[in-house]
Design a protein around this nucleic acid. Structure first.
Lengths: 149, 149
DNA sequence: TCAAACTGGTTCTATCTTAGAACTAGAGGC
DNA sequence: GCCTCTAGTTCTAAGATAGAACCAGTTTGA
């Protein structure tokens, strides 16, 4: 880790989250696992990260309970990486990053990939902020309420 | 930057997004700006980042069009940082990180902050994945469709 | 008015991380 | 059994960060 100041005990959930998956490679690893890559060598080839770094990141993600090592699905004696429920919970983080990237980081006419319903091919809708009652909300109409303490 | 391999031209929007805001400090800076902090000294105090690092990150975020320098709102000759539309687009990324952090990074009885409607105090709902038609969807029923090329 | 303090940085060095290559132990294939 | 593949570990050079020191322009206040 480069940031020597750990955010582990921070009051802010965003800071805590970034302390776990806010480094250079973790979210890309997790994206690849969501995309079906499981084995060390697959991840190494896909990401191009140095093996030492990849190894350290995977170990940390396992320690943090985001990934777990399970027996390889091809029946060999090797292991592969799988998302825990905690790791699966990161899907919307990936989706929000994807949607932002599609909106602001592509030339207007540049071809781009898109997330679709695997069964019907129907595109996934843009994520939307709503109140618990389902009323749409903009960011400038929100505020963070601190615990009563 | 630590990652020497730039992801700028990557085909994947997640990779492009992380190339812009995937470093150690950028998302925390943006979170603070969403929370109303604007001035260099406010951000420095809130984040505890070294001044040199904070300065470099802010400059990069301005270059990337995520933040912009505007005249300070107190009428002084100083400037302050504000979110551009591109920066405002990151709100759902912050919200998804916040919700994940609240779900998985807090002890069950630990007090936590929450995002609410500023006008009514009504809590913000969990983000939910849906198809364009509004049908709820789980992560394991999605796939990434590549452009026709 | 003019010195002191504040703002918003820049620059410096020691320390830590990363990239990339070389090396290794165990599993599989022939 | 021998060679290759898998999944790492270890090594070094190069690059990034933390924290302190420094500095120019702005504001305060006696």
């Amino acid at each position: 880790m480069v940031r020597r100041t750990s955010l582990e005990g921070a009051r802010c959930p965003v800071a805590r989250a970034l302390d776990v998956i806010g480094d250079w490679w973790s979210l890309l690893i997790i994206r690849d696992v969501f995309d079906g890559l499981r084995r060390f060598s697959e991840l190494h080839e896909s990401l191009g990260a140095a093996r030492g770094i990849l190894s350290a990141r995977l170990r940390r993600l396992v320690e943090q309970g985001v990934l777990e090592l399970v027996p390889a699905s091809d029946g060999s004696a090797y292991k592969e990486y799988a998302l825990t429920p905690k790791g699966q919970g990161l899907f919307l983080v990936i989706v929000s990053l994807r949607q932002w990237g599609e909106d602001f980081l592509y030339a207007p006419d540049e071809p781009r990939s898109g997330l679709v319903d695997a069964k019907t091919g129907e595109p996934v809708a843009r994520l939307k902020l709503r109140t618990k009652n389902g009323r749409p909300l903009d960011w400038d109409n929100t505020l963070v309420k601190m615990p009563a303490e």
